[in-house]
């Protein structure tokens, strides 16, 4: 008697904040807003809002994103949730 296993791709985001100066986001889905004071990143199931000063994208590819600058706050919002 056998059994079958269904494999489903699971995409999860991972956010790492280092000393309030650098944030690393893995599994992003693009940038919604980009300014030195605010960067909004789309992630699985919502957005990640980075608020700070002198924010810059250090490196970005289809999956990973590194933002540096003076990071004051990071807000995570679920899809459909309003500020």
């Amino acid at each position: 008697m056998g059994f079958s296993v269904a494999v489903k791709e699971i995409v999860l985001d991972k956010v790492t904040l280092s000393a309030g100066e650098k944030i690393f986001i893995e599994g992003h889905r693009g940038i919604s807003t980009y300014s030195p004071d605010e960067i909004v990143v789309r992630i699985y199931g919502g957005t990640l809002r980075i608020i700070g000063e002198g924010l810059e994208v250090n490196e970005m590819n289809g999956d990973e994103l590194t933002v540096s600058g003076k990071i004051n706050a990071v807000e995570r919002r679920k899809k459909g949730e309003k500020a």
């Binding site: 693009g30 940038i31 919604s32 807003t33 980009y34 300014s35 030195p36 909004v40 810059e56 994208v57 250090n58 490196e59 970005m60 590819n61 289809g62």
Partner: peptide
């Protein structure tokens, strides 16, 4: 043009972007 839009275009095309200044 919109930096966010440009970045999304490039990364969607598989381009690794670094040292972004706006």
């Amino acid at each position: 043009g919109s930096p966010a839009y440009t970045l999304n275009l490039l990364t969607a095309a598989g381009i690794r972007v670094s040292e972004v200044k706006i």
